[in-house]
Design a protein around this nucleic acid. Structure first.
Length: 483
RNA sequence: GGCCCGUUGGUCAAGCGGUCAAGACGCGGCCCUCUCACGGCUGAAACAAGGGUUCGAUUCCCUUACGGGUCACCA
């Protein structure tokens, strides 16, 4: 049988990391076994609907490569794929249940339900519906219906026994039926609740594997009872542990935690983010950590899913991001970095490719560019203490001497080119009988004005060009002479 | 509070009755080196606690502790 999974987000805003990971796993479960990945929009709650949220969903799926086989935008044989457009089909199923005595009309007012909860001793809301409307006579129901009294449809739970279901990651779970509330299936506005629509849609769409967060674990018995009532076979359940911000809290936008789009805006690569979140709650049978979506598809097995929540660690993501940057084909990498360089070095006509090359092994995120290249644009103010470096065996005196010595050599260099600069400096070092660092550290310092820089003295000189190099050396000499 | 679930280094995690308890990130040290970074080597660091079962428990069972989830006309 062909595996069919579905990603069923509700359009209530941005795409958060936990959601995206769920989509990833749904995609992988299907694709690793040649199945289909379906997108269904669950918009039964009109009050929470957010304009534009559907586009975010489409864009994210497109960007991440989680290509769906069926969905609102591309159609399919099981449409419509938007729950609100399916509205007409739920009532008949509710009625079928009522006829089977597995559900009933409830005309209770909100006020009555609220008072039910309050009257429950502790004042805590854990009262079940008291089944006030369960045994209304057919005449009463008919009369209520005809006089237009608002109603909901409730599922009739068995009072005794247990319901057991199997979850692929959590194993077999049993719950006493007495724990189960007569949940609402059809709301008074005629819309199905998520719990009801989900079961109907999943069945109608031939979803074989229901993959979702573990917060649904406790309502799954109700779902199973629904499948049973209809005489349908329940899907395979795959519940996923949460992605946490810390040991106590789930990742959530409310707390200002990073969403997928935030991470991208912060200079993280789409592929790196996907790779990282794949590893949050799943691990391959081998020890590999870096893999593309295609490779992931090859490696993925449901048995690699874990059941305990995992904390989102931006530090490890950052490392992984730098791995992706380093491994990237230069041209592709340059396309990503160029806009950042344009922005950081607006007025400069420097060789951006050379700068980018220096940066590739030093970037953790794309947004690090500005902070690393600022000195190319403008030499920062710096103190002469920068010239003192114990390991380089330099002092201010040595630095001054070295700068003065290299100045004429560089001025006279016939061609301004990296190896030529290198050779001339090395020759000078030899001639003066000093250490490499005693020449190059002062030079690098004079050229960058910073304690660290991407690239050494020679690389910086090459990129800055002769004129600017000479200018900065003179500036260094001037500073040192003032001492 | 009832019910359900979880608990291996700081973090991600392997393990599925017998291991010196992998690996990765991060952290420390060393090497490379004109700084930083990269790269290489190396070190510290964990089975929540207590009972069973067993010749033997990180692994199976129970209890406790701690954490999470759920108990909506939200999904």
């Amino acid at each position: 049988m062909e595996i069919r999974t579905r990603f069923a987000p509700s359009p209530t805003g941005y795409m958060h990391i936990g959601n995206l990971r769920t989509a990833l796993y749904e995609y992988l479960i299907a694709k690793s076994q040649g199945g289909k990945f379906i997108l269904r929009i669950e918009d039964t709650d009109q009050e929470r609907f957010v304009e534009g949220a559907v586009d975010i969903i489409y864009n994210t799926l497109k960007l991440t490569g989680l290509k769906h086989d069926e969905g609102p935008d591309i159609g399919g044989n099981y449409g419509p794929y938007v729950q609100s457009e399916r509205q007409g089909m739920y009532m008949q199923y509710a009625k079928e249940l009522i006829e089977k005595d597995q559900a009933y009309y409830c005309f209770c007012t909100k006020e009555r339900l609220d008072s039910l909860k309050e009257s429950n001793c502790e004042g805590v809301a854990f009262a079940h519906y008291d089944r006030h409307c369960m045994n209304l006579s057919p005449e009463e129901i008919k009369a209520n219906l005809e006089s237009g009294i608002p109603y909901v449809v409730r599922q009739k739970m068995p009072r005794e026994g247990q319901t057991t279901f199997d979850d692929v990651v959590y194993g077999s779970i049993s719950v006493d039926n007495s724990e189960l509330d007569d949940q609402i299936l059809i709301k008074s506005d005629g819309m199905p609740t998520y719990n009801f629509a989900n079961v109907i849609d999943d069945h109608l769409m031939d979803i074989t594997h229901v993959v979702r967060g573990s917060e649904y674990l406790s309502s799954t018995p109700k779902y199973n009872l629904l499948y049973e009532a209809f005489g349908w076979t329940a899907p395979v359940y795959v519940h996923l542990p949460a992605v946490m911000k810390d040991a106590q809290h789930k990742l959530s936008k409310r707390n200002g935690d990073a969403s997928f789009e935030d991470l991208i805006a912060k200079g993280y690569l789409v592929d790196a983010v996907m790779n990282y979140i794949a590893l949050l709650g799943w691990s391959p049978s081998d020890n590999t950590e870096i893999f593309s979506l295609e490779e992931l598809q090859q490696k993925f097995t449901i048995s690699g899913l874990s059941k305990s929540p995992s904390i989102f660690d931006i530090v490890k993501l950052t490392w992984m991001n730098s791995e992706y940057i380093k491994a990237m084909d230069f041209d592709k990498y340059f396309d990503l970095v160029q806009p950042k360089l344009d922005e950081a070095l607006r007025n400069k006509s420097l060789d951006f490719k050379k700068i980018a090359a220096l940066l590739q092994k030093r970037l953790e995120t794309l947004n690090d560019v500005a902070g690393l290249v600022d000195f190319f644009d403008q030499l920062p103010e710096y103190g002469t203490d920068l010239y003192v470096h114990k390991k380089m065996k330099t002092t201010e005196e040595i630095a001054l001497d070295s700068l003065k010595a290299c100045l004429p050599v560089l001025e006279a260099l016939p061609v301004w080119e990296e190896t030529a600069i290198h050779d001339s400096m090395m020759a000078l070092v030899e001639e003066k009988g000093i250490k490499n660092g005693q020449m190059l550290w002062p030079l690098r310092t004079a050229l960058s004005g910073k304690p660290t820089s991407p690239g050494g003295a020679i690389e910086l000189a090459d990129i800055l060009g002769r004129e600017e190099t000479i200018r900065r050396i003179n500036k260094g000499i001037e500073l040192l002479e003032k001492q």
